[in-house]
Design a protein around this nucleic acid. Sequence first.
DNA 1: GTGAAAGCGCTAACAT
DNA 2: ATGTTAGCGCTTTCAC
Lengths: 334, 334
Amino acid sequence: MKKVTIKDIAKEAGVSVATVSNVINGINKCTPETKDRILKVMDALNYKQNLAAKALATNRSNLIGFVLNKGLLQENPFYSTLLSGMDSAIRKSENYDLLIAGAFKDSTGEFSVTDWIQKRSLDAVVFMGITDEEILKDVDKLGIPMVLIDLKFESLKNAFFITIDDELGGYLATKHLIEKGYRNIAFIGGKYIDGIMKERYEGYLRAHLEAKLEPSEKNIFLENVSYEGGLKVGERLLSADGIDAIFCVADIMAFGIMKTLSKSDKNIPENLAIIGFDNLKSSEYIIPSLTTIDQNIFLKGKKSIEVLLDKLEGKSLNDKNIVIPIKLIKGETT
Amino acid sequence: MKKVTIKDIAKEAGVSVATVSNVINGINKCTPETKDRILKVMDALNYKQNLAAKALATNRSNLIGFVLNKGLLQENPFYSTLLSGMDSAIRKSENYDLLIAGAFKDSTGEFSVTDWIQKRSLDAVVFMGITDEEILKDVDKLGIPMVLIDLKFESLKNAFFITIDDELGGYLATKHLIEKGYRNIAFIGGKYIDGIMKERYEGYLRAHLEAKLEPSEKNIFLENVSYEGGLKVGERLLSADGIDAIFCVADIMAFGIMKTLSKSDKNIPENLAIIGFDNLKSSEYIIPSLTTIDQNIFLKGKKSIEVLLDKLEGKSLNDKNIVIPIKLIKGETT
DNA sequence: GTGAAAGCGCTAACAT
DNA sequence: ATGTTAGCGCTTTCAC
């Protein structure tokens, strides 16, 4: 069975390829009768569009790329949930697919996002965890719409930013603990205090200030944002004194802390309250269920794709900043 | 900055496009000097290959498709982990990328995998959760290599099967419970007893037989394979009598069961032991940690891609069946 | 409203 | 060892 092309359709329907092409692309330039005839022939011959040819002719691939740092998908369910959201949105689009970055090397042997975008003629890209401004600037120069999740570089002309109010999150979490009567609250953060960590920390400070409490430098614990990092923090907490509650910037770390504590004589929340951040699905599964700040990760992913789809379909978008609402989820750990 | 093509390279290097093409594709037909010169020019002009053009000319896209039923990614971390494994493998390949199925509709308005494969000129496909033999047969006719995860249809000429020994898993799990002294063991399965569920159930039966125990029909509980399904089973178990242990075909369900029980007066494992299946990452996080059958989900995903990559690179693969080893993970729930 | 034809960037068969 | 050239299937400008 030879491949059916628009040429075959054109011949069979007694029209030119241009007309067939117009019909396929919804460009209404022909009589309804012609259109109908073409549609029928397409169906009869079981025509399938060749997107590579289309891409070559238009320089648009109908592909949205997703760039994520290596290994992240394994380390934190956060990223999987994000991907679920993206998947859910892309499935609603008729024509677009989601491309996961393989490993294109540039001349230096490194993965080069701009190379990748150009080779694949990507129409848009979503970035997660890429914080190198130079890379993002280079992509911006390519002129395709892009989405940054959890990051903002206002100078980028073609970027949309999907974020949450991290400072507020830190504030709400800490305030909740203070309202519950805890006074000596530890801050558990990632090893690298990047943008969002810093904001959450500032929220933590604001809640203290508001309650006229003074947080101690000794109450700051930094480890990798992972379950393993949490285990380590747990160990350190066992020998720390006077702490009655902790605000942990990521649920996944909180799980590790809870695990370590479960093997000690400290009970949660009686001896130590804990509030996380993210509201991972497993925060509900875990026993006791984790009090946390919900940041609707799924929606974050969904929005990333939706905004790009809208942009690609020519809708004019009023705002480059999309802020996903957050809320406190009361679990059993506080 | 106009796009640089092999034509430009050819002109600049004083050779023909064919030679440039050969160099790019590693076809050694020219003198090292020519090759060197071409490489230098490519670098100087910052050449980027256009994969759409290549795909059009060769009918190969350097793309591997991943087809997964809608919604699964959200329902069970199993699928995310699988995807992590695939991601990890695809990143090691120089030239391939992973494409997530968007929503191509066929003439009936349904998503059509064969349409998708043809439109995108996919080189290979991984299927997860697609059990419709007709669909798979249609794909098989296209002649591209494919991988089925957790499913086998021996009649498919171009398929590889990534599986585990599910019967053995069911056997090991049940045997473990019996050895621990439990005698009245419930079987918790999915609502649809498909291939793998049935096998796990058979393993459950074999372990009983071997121990000269007779499992009761009343001890079978079927619900959706999800956390919510587990919650429901938990409720049903509360009013069930005499059961001292349960074998649950999926960790995610076990989490639900544990949650429901945690709100009752039944303690795990004192009043009710529980063993799961999968060894999700969260099975370790959860408190108490879940005894389960590890099936190395990450490896499953990784192998899927690796076998396809090997096949696409022309390696002859001796076996269409790849069986991932499983093992018992002793947690605190038994 | 419809058609003819050039061209998108690359490959591969055939020449030299 | 290198060059010539005819496609791959589609879009798009321009002409009718």
